[in-house]
Design a protein around this nucleic acid. Structure first.
Lengths: 153, 153
DNA sequence: TTAAATGCAAATTATTTGCAGAAGC
DNA sequence: GCTTCTGCAAATAATTTGCATTTAA
């Protein structure tokens, strides 16, 4: 998926009259080198593995461009930092379930949700833009076995 | 609604062996004196109108107690601050639609969503805890009339 | 009396920004 | 060559915390 997404971002940059730089290229390449969610700090580390000269400031300046161009989604799950999701290109309609036990984020798709959201928006006099369903739930595995295989750290 | 909710919070405080103070009382009274959403800073201002000695630190120390006791919901809509919602006591299953044009938050209830969320959680091996559907949408009124009556500021 | 609560001010932490030098077009 | 970009370090802003003092039980 990376090649097309990166090309799309480069077209966006060009259309805006902005420039192509080694640092930007590294950040964008890093941003689509994984299907995991990541923070700005994570992205900095990943980008530096590609191009060590990348600075934190440039990451923070590039992230809004990625979001504005539509290739990356910014999410806020009430933690102290924002999380970025590179998977909307492949799965444009997915939602997130957050485990209250292990903090793990599970992605899922459901067409009924999609439909329902459209109905509700229209009923209230709005046109749906981006929708996000956040389900906070506890892991059945944890309850049964006293542990959760998804638990990190 | 305030009286019962406040009694519920006081019972929680007592059960935890914590104390009743004028500052705490003022913050709690302020927290349920409105059906609007508010920030920590807003709550500080409201509480100070009741009891001027209330400090910012005490507001920040009391908010987690209100949330933990279940009478107040903390929400994060990706702004730079958290927003608190006192309406879950009257409407335990409501969801939020956020207007991308005017930033207004509209509350709504829908039993289909409720049901769907339960199904999805179970399908993925989780037990639903708290669920929040966030729909970001643009205002039809704005598009038609070039203005949105809900726009503030 | 004694543990908990308070206000204040300083600390923390993610993110933003000013600036002078470097680099794309 | 003229802008845009960059790294750095300082600034910002919401929230948290240490501490000496006050207060509820």
């Amino acid at each position: 998926m990376s090649p097309e997404v990166i090309a799309r971002f480069n077209a966006f940059i060009a259309a805006k009259g902005l420039r192509k730089t080694v640092q930007r290229d590294a950040i964008v390449a890093a941003a689509f080198s994984t299907t995991e969610h990541y923070t700005a700090e994570d992205l900095l580390a990943m980008a530096r593995r590609i191009e060590p000269s990348v600075s934190r400031a440039t990451v923070y300046r590039t992230l809004p461009l990625l979001v504005e161009s539509g290739v990356l989604k910014e999410m806020d799950f009430g933690r102290d930092h924002k999380i970025y999701d590179p998977n909307y290109n492949e799965h444009p309609h997915h939602n997130h379930l957050i485990c209250t036990d292990c903090d793990k984020i599970v992605e899922f798709e459901d067409q009924h949700i999609e439909l329902l959201e459209d109905c509700i928006s229209k009923r209230l006099g709005f046109s749906p833009a981006s929708k996000s369903l956040r389900i906070e739930a506890s892991c059945d595995q944890l309850k049964k076995m006293g542990a959760c295989e998804k638990r990190k750290r």
